[in-house]
């Protein structure tokens, strides 16, 4: 590819993106973006409802750790594309979007399960023991100690699940679902490279935007940041540690919530 070719791709893509009709027409960017966000949102809600209670409970009682790890390992070996196509050709395919929704939720569950489980399980054991010693019940312990301590990893799980959903929702276009992926597949169908590249740019931008927004939410909403009695340096660094590969131990060195059970 020469530099001139490359430049022409850039200008073609730019002009495709800046053509108003491509945004507003039937099957245009706005409609596809709406479908994409709707699909991602619905599936994220379903995933949270299914995964969070299970992961928190398992983490609380300290069982099922091998299950949480194995599910995400197994999930990696199964091609998303194959599951999407199999489900849409199967009996579920008759019920509109449900084949797509089930496939998306299946692939969003493992990261959330694993992270939320790890978060609760690895909550500082000293703090948990202290809270037990103060006479907290199981429910109080989970709500007031383990949950706040696990919050960063739960948010990491939600972030990963959301990014995964944005990616899988793109693939839903291949077996005929909606979403921004349709711009890409339609571009391939018409041999319009500008449209393919424009669609890909929009999808990539959406994925990065979703991740960025959720990181911001995590920083703002971390319950350990708002405790006025916590040491200053601890609240200062809170945003940086939750979303990295750092072992949860780095997070666990945190004070107990200021006001334990009443």
């Amino acid at each position: 590819m020469t530099a001139v070719d490359f430049l022409s791709y850039v200008t073609d893509t730019f002009s495709w993106l800046t053509t108003g009709a491509h945004w507003t027409e039937e099957g245009g960017i706005l409609q596809r973006l709406g479908e994409h966000l709707y699909l991602t949102g619905v599936c994220l809600a379903i995933t949270c409802v299914l995964a969070l209670p299970l992961a928190l409970w398992l983490g609380h009682i300290g069982r099922g750790g091998a299950l949480a790890v194995n599910i995400s390992n197994a999930g990696r070996a199964v091609p998303t594309f194959a599951v999407l196509v199999l489900l849409s050709m199967g009996p579920l395919g008759r019920y509109g979007d449900w084949a797509t929704i089930v496939a998306l939720v299946l692939f969003a569950l493992p990261p959330l399960l694993t992270n939320a489980y790890t978060g609760v399980r690895e909550a500082d054991r000293d703090v948990v023991e202290a809270a037990k010693g103060m006479g907290m019940t199981g429910g109080q312990l989970l709500r007031q100690v383990e949950l706040p301590l696990a919050f960063p990893l739960i948010m990491t799980g939600i972030q990963t699940a959301a990014v995964q959903l944005v990616a899988t929702a793109t693939l839903a276009a291949l077996p005929g679902g909606g979403g921004l992926g349709r711009l890409i597949t339609a571009g391939f169908g018409n041999y319009r490279t500008a449209q393919v590249v424009a669609g890909a740019l929009l999808v990539a931008a959406l994925a990065l935007l979703v991740e960025g927004v959720l990181k911001l939410v995590e920083r703002r909403a971390d319950p350990m940041r708002r405790r006025p009695t916590g040491p200053a340096e601890d609240t200062g660094g809170a945003g940086d540690t939750g979303n990295t590969t750092a072992p949860p131990g780095g997070r666990a060195r945190r004070p107990a919530p200021a006001r334990p059970g009443t």
Partner: peptide
């Protein structure tokens, strides 16, 4: 990390003009 966030269909589509 940014590369990892880009969905696969978009990744392949973005590389299309480079390699055909």
């Amino acid at each position: 990390t940014i590369l990892y966030t880009v969905p696969s269909l978009a990744m392949f589509a973005l590389l299309l003009p480079v390699f055909g």
